[in-house]
Design a protein around this nucleic acid. Sequence first.
DNA 1: GTGAAAGCGCTAACAG
DNA 2: CTGTTAGCGCTTTCAC
Lengths: 349, 349
Amino acid sequence: MKMSVTIKDVAKKANVAPSTVSRVIHNSPTISEKTKRKVRKVLKEMGYHMNENARNLVTKSTKAIGIVMKSSARESLYNPFFPEVIRGIGDFCNKEGYSLSLTTGETEDAIFEDVVKMVQGRRVDGMIVLYSKKDDKVVPYLIKQGFPFVLIGKPSTNLSGITFIDNDNVQAAMEVSEFVIGLGHKRIAFLGGSPEFEVISDRLMGYQQAMDAAGLDVPQEYIKLIPLNRTDGLKAIDDLLGLKEAPTAFLVMDLLLGVLLLGVLAEKNMKVPQQISVVCFNHSEFIEFLSTPLTTVDIHTHQLGYEAAKCVFDLIANPEMMEKNIRIPTKIIKRESHFAVGEELKRKM
Amino acid sequence: MKMSVTIKDVAKKANVAPSTVSRVIHNSPTISEKTKRKVRKVLKEMGYHMNENARNLVTKSTKAIGIVMKSSARESLYNPFFPEVIRGIGDFCNKEGYSLSLTTGETEDAIFEDVVKMVQGRRVDGMIVLYSKKDDKVVPYLIKQGFPFVLIGKPSTNLSGITFIDNDNVQAAMEVSEFVIGLGHKRIAFLGGSPEFEVISDRLMGYQQAMDAAGLDVPQEYIKLIPLNRTDGLKAIDDLLGLKEAPTAFLVMDLLLGVLLLGVLAEKNMKVPQQISVVCFNHSEFIEFLSTPLTTVDIHTHQLGYEAAKCVFDLIANPEMMEKNIRIPTKIIKRESHFAVGEELKRKM
DNA sequence: GTGAAAGCGCTAACAG
DNA sequence: CTGTTAGCGCTTTCAC
């Protein structure tokens, strides 16, 4: 490992004071163009590069922001949420010359320790917490410390003073329900997700509202709130398809369940969209590889991350800022996994 | 933001010198148990926490390792490689009390700048480079700097002095080919991936070797090296299925192409595994959600990351260490997407 | 055993 | 405009 060039080395070689070098580096207007040129030349010649630690120590800023992953690394392994949201955060941070620091812990306690280390150890200027969860220690801790942070998702407990970024899931579910209703469907099922996640309960609400507004009945059997795995997924799908009044359309909460559903339908020789409509939340480029052109709801994960980063920066710049809540709009990406209910089918319904 | 407690504050309150507090923190054996107890009490009372920047400045170590993502964040968005490998790295780092720092740049140049900042700015003690690519500036730079780093993948140019972790892709492809050959297949296609990636050319080699060893012919039309997208994928698949001597088995390089293939086969009413065998590289839990129980090759991504982290630590501890190359074994996960060629079919072949 | 002092590389008054 | 000085919070000789 090469020994590095310090400001002092440069100062000596350029015959100026270290502070002058520092000023040149920061392009201070109080330095003459002549000295700047001279110093810059030496800077380049010697291959100088800032020691961030030293700078951080004196400026008390780190030019880094922390990302708290909860134990969700596993959860989000399947869908592109995790890399996508980090890309969003990264995009913004990059523009600001900031770097990212990830928690590495797997257990809740380990993660909490990571966060404490980041915060108390002054390793980051702000934090972004991915996902919100009940009975979480991290968020209350950050609040207590008065440390700038932003939550992606919706705070579970109604703690005030939290800036958070999320989608309007009620609205999104309402829109997508209205869309399906507009096609003429009356029997619409809601598939997937555990109601303990705010995301799901919000979407459920939007769905119910749209159905109510359209004067459509929602039998409890149409709502399947299940964990994300093959077994439970298959059971729920079988249950739904086995109903005497089986749904003609499915609102699916997750791409994976969507894939599972398409598989089952194919096996049963039920054509999508000719016989069944499917709309799936959480768009991803992955769906292009499916043989069925699935209609999806894009939650704009990248933008979620980008805006979160932006908010943290605002908070860092102005710690007394009022908390706020930014909603990232969702968008229905219409493809052909649904059908307008034709006269013939309508008669049968 | 609360003002933080320093060693001096603690020293004052405990009536000892700052150096003593430092020694207590590091549990130096030269300090009496009595003072230790006293100081530890104050430490706890005041909620002291180390300022890592200050420590890093003097010790010249950062307790952090950097991860270079190339522009691959996008590439690996689809498959779980990225989160999985980071989990692996994180697992090890966590045990050692290290944190992770990610590059945020999107373009090659931006990423290179990130790396320079990390290295020269002394923000990390070592680096892990995910994926290897031709004409890359990062690896040569790290070598020139003598900075400890490990590559996940196989160096493209034959630069010596690189420690790298990868799978034995030749071996893996050979095994999986032998497996398929063992089932009685004679017409086996190789689908996907660009040959500029070492991964792919290695696998191709293994496949060829196995075919040769079995005395089987490999017509060039059976080998489709294509970029990972829907259009090219569909075309390749159509070409293959359109051959007068169409393959009875497919070795697919990527889960996505596997999904695409299954879709096409389903549309053509060709049953997997009854009529066509499919084996797919890069296992992921995702495949459980597919209706076809796909046989896959597990490349043990998590372990790839874990071992890479381990190697970086070794390198940091002993910078003069000889470079080495660790191969993570692969494993065929057998499910039902293949068939043993029965007498009837054999006669037709 | 413990304290005093120097200094890691940088920035930020304060002089001049 | 530029140099001098004094730290940021910590570790680490070197004394005592």
